[in-house]
Amino acid sequence: MIKIVFFAQLRERLECEQIQWDYVQGITAAHLKSQLSAQGGNWLALEESDVLCAINHEISALETIINDNDEVAFFPPVTGG
């Protein structure tokens, strides 16, 4: 399984903080994002705006391959400081 977490306006638009997702060998963060948005409805928010990705708490490119039991985060560009 993959644990997926969402933050800030993306979390609010999806009305979802975290979900578990079936792991498929060789899947990238970009594939995962497409699978999620293919659910339609609120999930289309993943395609409508700038979305960054972190894998196991490291900012990662969307092309990065995910391993089983990874934690994947999707979030909007950061605005701290």
Partner: peptide, 23 residues
């Protein structure tokens, strides 16, 4: 670097309600 790499997000409160700050 903190402003573009640290996973922190601001939401402003004002008279017209709450709004996420754009990067």
């Amino acid at each position: 670097y903190l402003k573009t790499q640290a996973p922190i997000w601001k939401k402003e409160r004002s008279d017209i309600g709450e709004q996420w700050v754009a990067s």
